[in-house]
Design a binder for these strands. Sequence first.
DNA 1: CACGTATTTGGGATTGAGTCTCGTTCTGTG
DNA 2: CACAGAACGAGACTCAATCCCAAATACGTG
Lengths: 147, 147
Amino acid sequence: MSHTEAPTWSEHVHSVLARAGHQRGGARERVIELLARQPCALSAVEIEDALRAEGTPIGRASIYRVLELLVEHGLAERVAVGPGQSRFEAIDPSGAHHHHLICRECGRLVAFDDPGLERAIDNLSRRLGVRVEHHDVLLRGSCEKCE
Amino acid sequence: MSHTEAPTWSEHVHSVLARAGHQRGGARERVIELLARQPCALSAVEIEDALRAEGTPIGRASIYRVLELLVEHGLAERVAVGPGQSRFEAIDPSGAHHHHLICRECGRLVAFDDPGLERAIDNLSRRLGVRVEHHDVLLRGSCEKCE
DNA sequence: CACGTATTTGGGATTGAGTCTCGTTCTGTG
DNA sequence: CACAGAACGAGACTCAATCCCAAATACGTG
């Protein structure tokens, strides 16, 4: 890693997938690029709509395939917001990650991170004697705007 | 977990619902009784199957109605395990609650609680300045047996 | 560059959890 | 025991997600 530019998420994704023996295809590229540009989690349906709106419609099957592939390789995260739909979001290669608050009033998804929380989960997994590969924390309440 | 103390969960549920002006009905009773007997979260489909297997089949609509009612009154919790299915579980009237670890190997759902984690979430919500009504923590990894 | 094979893609059928509707049945009250 | 409102259930329906398979594409090789 030189000082020029940190590797972007899409670059990271491409290198991981290439190393795993995957070829490149148009559909995958477009889903990755779209995801790379998002500030927060998108649902598969939103991805499908967004790509169609951009004039590059992608088959539903391909979208789900790409998302599954990304999750499998730890490159994206599935956020289960409730019954009926999952949202997906890029995972930063630096390892930094965040969690979400769903506002009961406006339905907005707010991202946050918290070292204390990470520490607590760390201690917890040690106490339980299990190897925790991944953790989701989802808070439900009212966001600042809706207080 | 806890021993059977004076007010059982079903008694608590009945009193809360009665106070909210609900009548009693056979379907609701059976779902509540079934849920009361469970050690851990069940999906709506599992509830439907279990009740049919016991010889008291309950309409799907009623099951979802009851579950929604319970969640609404803070008597049960919905655990979003993944895409396409929610699980439901009784909430202890004492306020004690727990979270879950999903084992990647065997798919088992393991319950645990942790004061440190609760404290971290408490501090966090204060820091963010939001009112957190509910929180879910879902760990993914390998359970003791599958280590 | 042309070729051949393995991978990727997408349309469309299918699944399955969850929701909705509406007529019937039950509960609690006067 | 009659009535009004609450609860129930069968089944149609919605919609995210999966499956299937033939066509298109990537890419190493000759």
